[in-house]
Computed example of a mutant assay.
Amino acid sequence: MRPTAVLADLRREFAPAPGHLDAATAGVAPARMLRALREDLDRWGAGRMDVGRYEDAVVRARGAFASLVGVAADRVAIGSQVSVMAAVVAASLPDGAEVLCVTGDFSSTVYPFLAQGDRLRVRHVAADELAAAITPGTALVSYSLVQSATGAVLDDDAVVAAARAAGARTLCDLTQAAGWLRVDAGRYDVSVTAAYKWLCAPRGTAFMTVRADAQDALRPVQAGWYAGADPWSSCYGPAMTLADDARRFDVSPAWQAWLGAAESVTAFAEVDPAVVQAHAAGLADGLRAGLGLAATGSAIVTLPDPDGARRAALEAAGCRVAGRAGRVRLAFHVWDDADDVARALGALAAGPGDVPGSVPGDTPGAR
């Protein structure tokens, strides 16, 4: 699938209220997805549910996501949540394996490993120390490319190189990246992405990419009928014939959710990701400039907000934002424009005190 649309086409799919700066929490449903779901509800209510239509939607969504993140479709598995897919990786590690995580990273990249108790050794380091902390004893490096709490984008070339040199695997969470940031999932042994944020799909849809040379290191502990080589002909025991590609890690799709995901992910795959990135990050850097902060190239802006006063001021001005880890978080996406930047600047100017000149984790030069 190759980009065929332009940014204006994609922007016309969305019509949220002005001031929606919260794609990092959840995306906005595109018009094409709403039409597909409403039509499906009518078919379902009339007793005309079409399973073949859902099967086609899974194929379309898988292919669109593969195109968006630069891998072949047979390297993509479908799932429901990031933590569930990360748990497959955790369950596949040998006893005593060391997992290296980022301090303050989102829990879905950490809890699946901590939940293994003393079977695994989990170590946490600051994001900018991640590459240097990898040793020959590290089995897995698990981290988010874009940090949920701060919006910081890891320049992870050194991380990937250090992991390969040490013989460690990489698990990268692309949830806060895919949809606005141009990414190459093929760089990682495994990547996981929840699609309900920047890709604007229904919640309960997620993707996992698995490099061919990493596939045999993973145990398909969630194998069910949809992980079969031919799901409709291998859905009864006692023999198990799993797909020989990444589909062996598929979970049975929630039909309506994937019908919606096919529409939203395809919409993003039709547009050059670099164009979306320039638009979203450009608006965010415009807000930073208005606040006297350095540009970072991230579509997410976070500001210290320990008492929630800045969030309250933004919401009073009609901005939809989020509070995370003592910060207020503003996330700019395709539906936002210069008016949204101006609205946020006006609210912050009327808010408490001056905005500090820097935010921990939100540094210049980020990818």
Rank of each mutant, 00 (worst) to 15 (best):
D156R: 01
A299R: 15
S298T: 10
G52L: 08
F332T: 10
R38L: 13
T4D: 12
F113I: 06
P3A: 09
G19E: 01
D336N: 15
L41D: 14
R169T: 11
A349F: 03
F113A: 03
A77F: 07
C235W: 13
V265E: 08
F268M: 04
D245H: 04
F14T: 10
A262I: 03
R38M: 09
G353K: 14
L100M: 08
A17G: 09
V265M: 10
S108P: 00
S107M: 11
D305R: 06
Y188V: 05
L181F: 12
W255D: 14
V276Q: 03
Q116T: 03
A342G: 05
G351L: 02
P202W: 07
D339F: 04
L303K: 07
W232I: 09
D128A: 10
V146P: 07
A77C: 11
A338R: 14
I134K: 01
D157G: 13
D56N: 06
L303F: 12
A246D: 03
A133K: 02
R367L: 14
L140G: 00
T175D: 12
S264L: 11
D105T: 12
G365C: 11
A72V: 01
D340F: 01
P202D: 07
R12N: 12
V190M: 08
Y54E: 08
A168Y: 03
A317N: 08
Q215E: 13
T170A: 08
P360L: 11
A46C: 06
F106K: 05
A29E: 15
V71A: 06
R53Y: 08
A206I: 05
S107E: 14
G318S: 09
V210I: 15
G282F: 02
D354E: 15
G326I: 04
L218R: 03
L10F: 06
V88L: 10
A91M: 07
R169G: 13
T4L: 12
V328H: 04
G286P: 01
A212S: 14
A347Y: 01
S92E: 06
A8L: 11
D336F: 01
P304F: 09
H333N: 14
A73Y: 01
G224P: 01
D155K: 04
A366T: 10
D340K: 00
R288P: 02
T193L: 14
G228P: 05
T150R: 02
A280C: 15
A166V: 09
P306V: 07
P304T: 08
R248G: 10
A201V: 04
D155R: 12
